[in-house]
């Protein structure tokens, strides 16, 4: 700005940085995401307390306990939510828990069905014998309150159209008294609804799996015990993945799978079981890149500002001189 009209001054690196075309930044971020796909870093996953609390709680449930999973997200947040769903479902199936799936968000309807049948197939679980998918019901808060009175009244039939009274698995499941844990996997305010309308009035134990955007808003519910634990975004998903993978190693399930499955299928399965963890490699690189951008950007901003101020000062001093 100073050199206007004079000969074009040579730009400093700070000025270059300030004038950087944002598309270059997009490109750098894209590279940071893609490179670890080809050269995995395999960074260690550090399991945080809120995630471990969910895992530990599920571990205390005896086989046959009932877990209700609510699919409260849509395709736009799948990379964060889907690995979470998969990890939680796997844990439930490994421990032979009865899983009831519901959707309180219209977009979650199809995703819930896909997720449940996918993971059930991996673990040889059968619809209506080991799990049930009830699908979408409108009026989230009213639905959650009404389950406290009778699940059968809320969902007259399951997603496939079978009358709920004919599903033997749900014969004994009527109210929250018969449900040991609710897991809300939500990209919306619906996770909070479960706290408000299931935990508060009915003392239902609720675990939350939410997008990273929302994660911070839910921490207050952890200290008070209104939620038993929290999975936040892809990081939370990768932690739960690790816990379930470790558990399967410990129980010999992973080993049995390695022996039984053909190579290609095994590799595909193992990749799916580590989807969030694989993503976290890219995530870490991008975070490092962003931190570098922030540091550089701030350094440039402050040095330029200091220089500009010094120049202004010098200019005003010169001005005084000629007066």
């Amino acid at each position: 700005m100073n050199g206007r009209g004079e000969m074009k001054q040579k730009r400093t690196w700070q000025e270059h940085l300030q004038a950087l075309d944002r598309r270059i930044i997009y490109l750098l971020i894209a590279l940071a995401v893609v490179i670890p796909f080809f050269f995995p870093l395999g960074l260690p996953t550090n399991v945080t307390e809120p995630v471990r609390q969910v895992f530990d709680y599920v571990e205390t449930l005896p086989p046959g306990s009932v877990v209700l999973i609510s699919f409260d997200f849509g395709p736009s947040t799948m990379p964060e939510m889907y690995p979470m769903v998969r990890a939680v479902l796997r844990h439930c199936f490994v421990r032979d828990l009865v899983v009831i799936g519901v959707a309180n968000h219209p977009d979650g309807t199809a995703l819930g069905r896909i997720a449940m049948s996918e993971v059930a197939a991996d673990y040889g679980k059968v619809n209506q014998e080991d799990y049930v998918y009830l699908g979408y019901m409108a009026g989230a808060s009213a639905v959650m309150l009404a389950i406290g009175r009778d699940l059968h009244g809320v969902y007259p039939r399951d997603y496939g159209g079978v009358p709920i009274g004919e599903i033997e698995l749900l014969e004994e499941v009527h109210t929250y008294n018969d449900i040991d844990l609710v897991v809300s996997i939500a990209a919306t305010a619906l996770a909070e609804f479960w706290v408000l309308y299931a935990n508060t009035p009915y003392r239902q134990q609720v675990a939350l799996g939410v997008t990273a955007v929302q994660a911070l808003n839910f921490y207050p519910y952890l200290d008070t015990g209104q939620a038993i634990g929290l999975l936040g975004g892809m990081k939370g998903a990768s932690e739960y993945e690790k816990l379930v993978n470790d558990l399967e190693e410990e129980l010999g399930i992973a080993e049995a799978r390695r022996r039984a499955l053909p190579e290609a299928q095994l590799r595909a399965l193992e990749r799916r079981f580590r989807e969030a963890s694989i993503g976290m490699d890219s995530q870490s690189i991008v975070h490092a890149a962003i931190i570098a951008f922030i540091v550089l950007g701030n350094a440039a901003f402050f040095t330029l500002r200091r220089r500009r101020r010094a120049e202004e000062l010098a200019e005003s001093a010169r001005g005084k001189g000629t007066d």
Partner: peptide
Amino acid sequence: GASFGYTVMARVSLLIGRMQ
């Protein structure tokens, strides 16, 4: 600030998902 950081992670996650 913490919320901002979390949001960056969320958005990058979506990018990772699409890139995968």
